[in-house]
């Protein structure tokens, strides 16, 4: 007992903590730490554990089958041989070239011109940002209804409209980063006689590269997280394979308790497939320019 007390006293002295400070820290950190332990550590470890089980209707519980990799093997088989499920992976993966290959470069160009004192730049910033604070259900329906049979756009615009790249959030972040670039750096370039393209590629982009890498990573993460846009544009999540995504499949089936092990294995397998690409993408992007403090 005395030994424990002595240890506590040593720790308090080492960290310069009074009893009041220890109580204060414990009281205020209790909920966040418990919440983290439950929602992250426990739930994720349960997800991993359950992914190796199967539902047994006789005992109404999850049991470990003879082949503990049954769920994983089943999903690998489905991904390889069932077009419906491989299309889910394919649809999810398609968001990456759209977000990282089209939306992000467009956002960089748009942000650069907003940074260049384009007339009405504040107006554009507000208008471009507005959709990102509206409910997804309203936003997707507002666009979809216009393309409906009674809508105001024809079939050609319908295609273009759905592909309308959502650059709004990126533009606000990037123009914020560009606004922090010291004017002297840009002035030096101008004295050297560089044009818009050179200024953008040689001065502005290298300086805002960390923000671009962040947006690139967020864009790559959509492969595992995006579903609401497709859900509201195309309808039901359950059984929607043509436009379904990884997250949409989980969203459409989460309440089916008999399928929990399969869904857990599905989610984890998708993470295993896509997460290395996300990290690899980030690593490659980080190699292009060195981060500079300014």
């Amino acid at each position: 007992m005395e030994k424990t007390k002595g240890k506590e006293h040593k720790i308090r002295r080492r960290y310069n903590l009074s009893v009041g400070a220890v109580v204060f820290i414990c009281v205020l950190l209790a909920y966040p730490v418990i919440h983290f332990l439950i929602t992250w550590v426990y739930i994720n470890s349960q997800t991993i554990a359950l992914s190796f089980t199967r539902y047994n209707p006789v005992v109404n519980d999850y049991q470990i089958p003879n082949d503990i990799f049954y769920n994983y093997k089943m999903w690998i088989d489905r991904f390889l041989h069932d077009e419906r499920y491989s299309s889910i992976l394919w649809n999810s993966a398609l968001y990456v070239p759209v977000t990282c290959g089209i939306t992000l470069p467009l956002s960089v160009v748009c942000s650069y011109f907003l940074y260049k004192d384009l007339p009405g730049k504040n107006f554009f910033k507000v208008i471009y940002f507005l959709p990102s604070i509206l409910p997804v259900v309203v936003l997707t329906m507002a666009f979809r209804l216009g393309f409906d049979t009674f809508g105001y756009v024809n079939a050609l615009l319908r295609f273009m409209g759905i592909q309308n790249p959502p650059i709004w959030y990126n533009v606000v972040l990037l123009s914020g980063a560009m606004a922090r670039i010291p004017q002297e750096l840009v002035e030096v370039g101008r004295l050297e006689g560089i044009n818009f393209t050179q200024e953008m590629t040689k001065v502005v982009i290298p300086l805002v590269w960390p923000t671009i890498v962040t947006l690139f990573t967020v864009g790559m993460n959509t492969v595992l997280t995006i579903y609401l846009q497709a859900y509201f544009l195309m309808g039901s999540a359950e059984g929607n394979f043509n436009t379904g995504t990884v997250a949409m499949y989980l969203f459409g089936n989460y309440s089916n308790q008999q399928q929990v092990p399969q869904l857990a294995a599905f989610g984890l397998l998708c993470s295993v497939i896509f997460v290395p690409f996300i990290f690899l993408g980030r690593r490659i992007m980080n190699h292009f320019f060195r981060e500079v403090d300014y």
Partner: peptide
């Protein structure tokens, strides 16, 4: 340790836990 765990939880995306959370 807490700081590191928080950052890891923000960076590492783990999908598939929704049905487990719903059940919990």
């Amino acid at each position: 340790f807490i700081f590191a765990m928080v950052l890891i939880s923000m960076v590492v995306p783990i999908v598939g836990s929704l049905p487990v959370m719903y059940r919990f």
